[in-house]
């Protein structure tokens, strides 16, 4: 039997918002370590990797490893039935072909349960090599979302250039060119509002704006976001999920032919 009870149910609602624009379906791999999900978007240009650790749940039981194929559109509809204050429990019997979501109101005076059919997904998983990135940039997630939204008006690609002075985001197209430069924060009083850059070597890469905008659907999960870059390898955009885990997006760069 599998059962995972999350007191802060709103986190799972936000995770859904972070996944459903990029992915139509995905396998939720459950083990005694926690819940993991890895899936590429339909165009195989970006990858989402979610990790929710068992110890972040109020109650977590996984008798046997379980992979639950879910249609994320359907799952999103069910999670919309949960209030932000609800406690959410996910449970399934071993070898089940359905999963049940239970939503409990804080004072237990309303308990809802929704059963959803599972899908057989034989999704391939990709090996993501450990990488010592040339540049990592931590910045407010709202700032990054704003940058992606503003610059994607100018072109379908965005150049992210990182030097020791700071990071520059640029886009150019028919209406013109936009450049946004963020300097490294001088003093870091409020951790989550700082721009912190660790640079081993300068990097400048080009990415498709539409995927970056899809990634920023995870903004509500964390006040800050971390970008990791190295020449000619996929960008990593990581949002922490409280103290339970993270969602990471990988995006292949656009490379000059």
């Amino acid at each position: 039997m599998f059962e995972a009870r999350l007191l802060q149910g709103s986190l799972l609602k936000k995770v859904m918002e972070a996944l459903k624009e990029l992915l139509n379906e995905a396998a939720w791999d459950c083990s005694d370590a926690g819940i993991q999900l890895q899936a590429m978007d339909n165009s195989h240009v970006s990858l989402v990797s979610l990790n929710l650790r068992a110890e972040g749940f109020d109650k977590y039981r996984c008798d046997r490893n379980l992979s639950m194929g879910m249609n994320l559109g359907s799952m999103s509809k069910i999670l919309k039935c949960a209030s932000n204050e609800d406690i959410i429990t996910i449970k399934a019997q071993d070898n089940a072909d359905t999963v049940t979501f239970v939503f409990e109101s804080p004072d237990q005076d309303k308990v809802s349960d929704y059963e959803m059919k599972l899908m057989n997904l034989d999704q391939e998983h990709l090996g993501i090599p450990e990488t010592d990135y040339a540049c990592t940039i931590r910045l407010p997630s709202s700032e990054f979302a704003r940058i992606c939204r503003d610059l994607s008006q100018f072109g379908e690609s965005m150049v992210i250039s990182c030097t020791k002075e700071g990071v520059r985001f640029s886009a150019t197209g028919d209406i013109g060119t936009g450049n946004i430069k963020l300097a490294q924060s001088a003093k870091v009083d409020k951790e989550e509002e700082a721009v912190v850059i660790e640079m081993q070597e300068p990097v400048s890469l080009t990415f498709a704006c539409r995927y970056l905008n899809s990634f920023t659907k995870a903004t509500s999960l964390s006040k800050s976001v971390q970008l990791s870059m190295s020449p000619e390898v996929p960008l990593v955009v990581e949002y922490k999920i409280e103290d339970i885990g993270h969602v990471r997006y990988y995006l292949a760069p656009k490379i000059e032919d």
């Binding site: 240009v45 970006s46 990709l126 292949a252 760069p253 656009k254 490379i255």
Partner: peptide, 14 residues
């Protein structure tokens, strides 16, 4: 002209 590469150019299936 910069072209979009698929992720599978960089990450191999397990």
């Amino acid at each position: 002209m910069s072209s979009q590469k698929p992720l599978t150019n960089f990450f191999k299936p397990l």
